[in-house]
């Protein structure tokens, strides 16, 4: 972004990569897949690079409002400094925080989750799925992210994206408004679970496996980690893959 600004240009959209997208080895692959799609569709985008910092979501949800606001206000200064108007992100937690919680602190942007962004690109005919037939006969189940679904009522965009693949989309028993959390929200990602009789991600993975799907589609870095761990725990990683929407679309575009 700094380079673009130095040249006096403004991007169509800022891609907010998020901490998981920047540091988590698995989610970095999603970041790269999404960037390939952006490039292939000729979207003029920019990233903040090392100027990006945590939105503060986990701090706020764990109760540390000071730390959240330090992060939020600093980020808003950077974003406003570059005159950013539109932000896309592949993380529902970043999405929720920037969209719903930054306005009260002076950050007003059009914020779009990558599932909605991908759906728009598909609707505009900018995404050409050359290899969609590779998915023929495969079963995909979509795991709703709480921060997309209940938190922001985005249930259909991710499904619309998956329907463009030539695959069989199957639903879990608990989906959309009753979708079961992967167990990582509310800063649970950063601590061990309290004492109970089961891990939440195992409960959810069992439900996903029960659909007979060989791909579990996710749209959130934390869901990705939790579901991947669940599949490993069930020793099904050989035949069941956990993939982000962007990875599936990139594959179908022949970009992977």
């Amino acid at each position: 972004m700094a380079e673009l600004a130095a040249r006096g240009e403004t991007p169509e959209v800022l891609f907010w990569v998020g901490c998981a997208g920047s540091f988590d080895d698995r989610y970095k692959r999603v970041t790269r897949a999404f960037v390939k799609i952006l490039e292939a569709t000729g979207t003029r985008f920019a990233v903040l690079g090392t100027e990006e910092t945590c939105t503060g979501d986990p701090a706020r949800r764990a109760g540390n409002e000071f730390l959240f606001q330090m992060q939020a206000i600093s980020n808003i200064q950077v974003l406003n400094g570059y005159g950013i108007r539109k932000i896309v992100t592949a993380c529902p937690h970043c999405f929720n925080t920037i969209k719903n919680e930054y306005p009260e602190l002076g950050g007003n942007y059009e914020v779009i989750h990558h599932s909605t962004f991908l759906q728009q690109l598909i609707d505009e005919g900018k995404i050409k799925l050359t290899d969609a037939s590779a998915f023929k006969g495969k079963k995909i189940t979509y795991h709703d992210s709480c921060y997309l679904g209940r938190a922001n009522t985005i249930y259909e965009a991710p499904r619309a994206v998956l329907e463009t693949l030539d695959a069989d989309l199957v639903e879990m028993k608990r989906c959309r408004t009753t979708g079961l959390c992967c167990g990582a929200g509310g800063a649970q990602m950063f601590k061990d679970a309290e004492r109970g009789n089961k891990e939440i991600n195992i409960e959810r993975t069992e439900e996903a496996l029960a659909t007979g799907a060989n791909t579990i589609a996710v749209a959130c870095p934390f869901c990705m980690t939790m579901m991947t761990d669940g599949v490993k725990n069930k020793e099904r990683e050989a035949d069941v893959k956990v993939k982000d929407l962007a990875e599936l679309i990139a594959e179908a575009q022949g970009l992977a």
Partner: peptide, 15 residues
């Protein structure tokens, strides 16, 4: 500036 212990200077390494 991230919930994990990574150096902020490595944030753009994914590219």
């Amino acid at each position: 500036f991230a919930p994990w212990k990574f150096s902020p200077s490595d944030r753009f390494n994914w590219a």
